[in-house]
């Protein structure tokens, strides 16, 4: 893209303009947006897997329907986000099938948090409350992104995530006020999810002068988002009498922020590289299912994945 057009684009960004799919844009902007958007879509799809295991096992009709509805929403989000990604990727000729190929071959990223196991019913509550809470934190900030088609669907996504939050909170409150076995299950789930939750926001120190920020693709930094999450949820978790598995976690009045123990960023990078506890298994499951259903896509005249 020549210098004049690039300067014109950056002037638009500086003015607070919103960019539409058909607008002229630097290749770098298109690629950065795509990476962010596709990672989000992949995450919604992979996020459905730990939770859908509990639909058949939900301990009541109302819970069964609610978990099914939540997973349905996540898949609906994936659908909307892949559509936005496809439109943005049109000049490259990349389709949703290509994006799914990349994901299932382990070439594309999705949020670490969806590589962890969900072995108990309490995990369902913790995920719906705290993981969705974390997602709402980052997605709330992304509502101000410069890429308009993404901002538009994020409004709907955030509204639905807010309901998921209530659903998760309800499960957690019920377990917290339940039998000793239920409370123990909840405490155990919190202890397993705490580090992945801190990892969710990424390591601190992300470059605020990077293209993603200059072009207003992102508007909030990793630590800022993590602090927002801690401010919202630590008091609530503590009020429930649950123990957060970090002896160094405390609110620093002077700094006006939470201090916390090192969450093991080595583990974070391992999982990013695809070595999460359930990464390989879940990708394999999706690959197998995709192959099994390929005949349907062929029958309706869609793209074969085989």
């Amino acid at each position: 893209m020549d210098l004049d057009l690039r300067a014109a684009f950056e002037a638009r960004i500086a003015r607070g303009d919103l960019i539409e799919a058909g607008d002229a844009m630097p290749d770098g902007y298109r690629r950065q947006c795509l990476r962010l958007i596709v990672t989000h879509a992949n995450s919604e799809l992979m996020g459905a897997l730990p939770e859908r295991e509990w639909i058949p096992r939900a301990p009541g009709l109302a819970r069964k329907l609610a978990v099914l509805a939540k997973v349905q929403d996540e898949i609906g989000h994936a659908q909307m986000i892949y559509r936005v990604a496809e439109d943005l990727a049109e000049p490259y000729g990349i389709t949703r099938a290509d994006m799914l190929d990349d994901l299932l071959a382990g070439r594309a990223k999705f949020h670490n948090v969806f590589s962890y196991p969900a072995p108990t019913w309490a995990d369902v509550g913790i995920i719906a409350w705290l993981v969705d809470g974390a997602a709402l934190e980052t997605q709330g900030a992304l509502l101000r992104t410069s890429y308009a088609p993404y901002a538009r669907i994020l409004r709907r996504i955030c509204a639905e995530e807010a309901v998921h939050l209530k659903h998760g909170e309800d499960i957690v409150l019920t377990l917290a006020g339940g039998t000793p076995a239920q409370r123990a299950m909840l405490q155990d789930a919190l202890e397993r999810w705490w580090r992945p939750l801190l990892h969710f926001f990424g390591p601190p120190g992300d470059a605020r002068n990077s293209d993603a920020f200059r072009w207003r693709i992102r508007t909030a930094g990793n630590e800022e988002l993590r602090q927002g999450f801690l401010r919202k949820y630590v008091p609530k978790i503590q009020r429930l009498g649950l123990r957060i598995p970090d002896p160094e976690l405390r609110y620093d009045e002077d700094l006006g922020r939470y201090a916390y123990g090192d969450p093991d960023w080595e583990e974070f990078w391992r999982v990013v590289r695809g070595e999460g506890p359930r990464t390989a298994e879940r990708l394999a499951l999706r690959r197998a299912s995709r192959l099994e259903q390929d005949w349907v896509r062929v029958a309706i005249g869609g793209e074969s994945a085989a």
């Binding site: 459905a48 892949y82 949703r96 259903q293 896509r297 869609g302």
Partner: peptide, 8 residues
């Protein structure tokens, strides 16, 4: 759920 042939 999560394994139907098309996301839609």
């Amino acid at each position: 759920c999560a394994f139907a042939p098309l996301i839609e």
